[in-house]
Design a protein around this nucleic acid. Structure first.
Length: 444
RNA sequence: GUGGAAGUAGUUCAAUGGUAGAGCACCAGAUUGUGGAUCUGGCUGUUGCGGGUUCGAGCCCCGUCUUCCACCCCA
């Protein structure tokens, strides 16, 4: 294989707009987070699944709206089939459920961490290829399932080591009941999209746009009073009462939200959740509770974890009733935000706990044996493979964020001992046995 | 997809249309194989890419690619 064309010119190495390579400095923390989430999801009894990256276009476009159509990567495959890259993990999951429902025991709780593709124009924290971490519960439509998803969102952020975040919750069903009460349910989608911009363009501009959509200043003001809290400190339950009254004393959805909040309270995590009636979500398939997550120090980055209840999604593919609720962490956006914040989470890039330096190439077999013994004890260790001056070897270890060097003199080799050197403090621990070295290495 | 801004060495930044520079980083050596000092030398580069105008383009014009911003939408 050659990287040259027939003319002998070198092909410019490049990747598509919105697509990225991951160097170890970012891939290591990314993989670490994924590992933590997988362990965490499993601890709740969620199970992993996988689905194809490529699907029939009609399967993915079944519902979701015109915007999805525009953003989906689709093309003809070599057999002239109309195919598309998955736009999210939720729609393929609905297809998966319809296809395998006889093999699944409901309620079914699954997680799925993988890449999705959208043909949007990229920006910081916004890519054409990105990883979503989905977790969903299907087969039950109740407050307990809604709560468990919210509870897992909260504990997932704790597990990832992220602080300063806020979950903003609303209820699509309650809002639709409110619109029906105002007799403008037919304009629902347009209104939802305008309401969603409150955070960005402010209430005056939203009021103007709503008046244009509904043709009524009065209705626009009533929508505004629904989505905009005059009193920022209004409590979750007070907001709920106010919205219920505005929606003509709506009962069903209000009661659901009350129960969910009671569970959050009992679990001691209610403080991370605020009722934000302006959260509506752009995707059309949500029918109940919806939520977005913002990092309080970087709100303009947008939501890093969103989702909601979708009771009719699987109805595209089956007559069976398969209500679901779920959430998705936007891992790439989250990593971009953590990088922006100089978070220690994206700075832990060490490839090993210790490097055995090459002070005598003739001793390689001994170094290898020492490395094997350390690995058996659970230490991540590598042997420096080139034959260079020690200064270069220290530099190499430092560039790889390896905290300890291991040096073996002739005398130490004969006694099966070695010197451990802390590469940050440059402190030496000479003449150690493996057993003596382990506690020092394991402190990290 | 639409509109705007930007793109120079690995990186941070200079250069009126007139010969591509500086710090840091990197590599080699002085230097002894347990490094952060100093000195010497070196690569720092087809100025994102391709055309055009011009005696001459990093600079002006057109196209294109990428990044960033806004719209749209979203994780």
């Amino acid at each position: 294989m050659s990287n040259k064309t027939k003319e002998g010119s070198i092909i410019e190495p490049r990747v598509l707009k919105g697509f990225r390579d991951f160097l170890p400095a970012m891939e290591i923390p990314k993989k670490a987070i994924i590992g933590k989430l997988e362990t965490h999801f499993s601890s709740y009894g969620f199970v992993p699944i996988d689905t194809p990256v490529l699907e029939y276009t009609e399967v993915l476009l079944g519902k979701g709206g015109g915007e999805t159509d525009k953003q989906i990567f689709h093309f003809k495959d070599n057999g002239e089939r109309d195919v598309a890259l998955r736009f999210d993990l939720t729609v393929p999951f609905a297809r998966f459920l319809a296809q395998h429902q006889s093999e699944l025991a409901l309620p079914f709780k699954r997680f799925h961490i993988d890449k999705v593709w959208r043909g949007e124009n990229p920006q910081k924290g916004r890519y054409r290829e990105f990883t979503q971490c989905d977790f969903d519960i299907v087969g039950v439509d109740n407050a307990e399932a809604d709560f468990e998803i919210l509870s897992m969102m909260d504990s997932s952020f704790a597990v990832m080591g992220i602080e300063d975040y806020q979950f903003c919750i609303a209820h699509r069903g309650l809002f639709n009941a409110f619109l029906a009460h105002l007799d403008i349910a037919d304009k629902s989608i347009e209104i939802l999209r305008t309401v969603d911009k409150l955070r960005k363009i402010g209430k005056d501009e939203v009021a103007l746009q709503l008046a244009r959509i509904t043709g009524s200043t009065d209705k626009a003001n009533r929508i505004l009073s629904y989505i905009h809290k005059e009193d920022e400190s209004e409590s979750f339950l007070d907001t709920l009462d106010r919205l219920s009254a505005l929606a003509g004393h709506e009962e069903v959805h209000t009661k659901r939200m009350r129960t969910i909040y009671a569970y959050l309270k009992a679990a001691g995590i209610a403080g991370h959740f605020v009722f934000d009636p302006s959260i509506t979500r752009g995707l059309d398939y949500y029918t109940g509770i919806v939520y977005e997550t913002f990092l309080t120090r970087l709100p303009h980055f947008g939501s890093v974890c969103s989702g909601g209840r979708y009771n009719d999604l699987a109805s595209l593919y089956t007559k069976e009733k398969l209500p679901g609720v779920g959430s998705s962490i936007g891992l790439d956006r989250l990593l971009a935000a953590l990088e922006e914040l100089d978070s220690p989470i994206v700075q832990s890039t060490s490839s090993a706990d210790a490097a055995i330096l090459n002070t005598d190439a003739a001793s390689f077999a001994y170094y290898d044996q020492l490395a094997r013994n350390l690995r058996k004890a659970g230490v991540r260790v590598c042997v420096y493979l080139a034959d260079k001056k020690l200064a270069a070897q220290y530099k190499w270890a430092e560039n790889n964020a390896i905290p300890y060097a291991i040096l073996v003199s002739k005398e130490e080799e004969e006694q099966n001992r070695f010197t451990l050197k802390n590469l940050v403090s440059r402190e030496n621990h000479p003449n150690l046995t493996l057993q003596e070295a382990l506690p020092i290495l394991q402190r990290n």
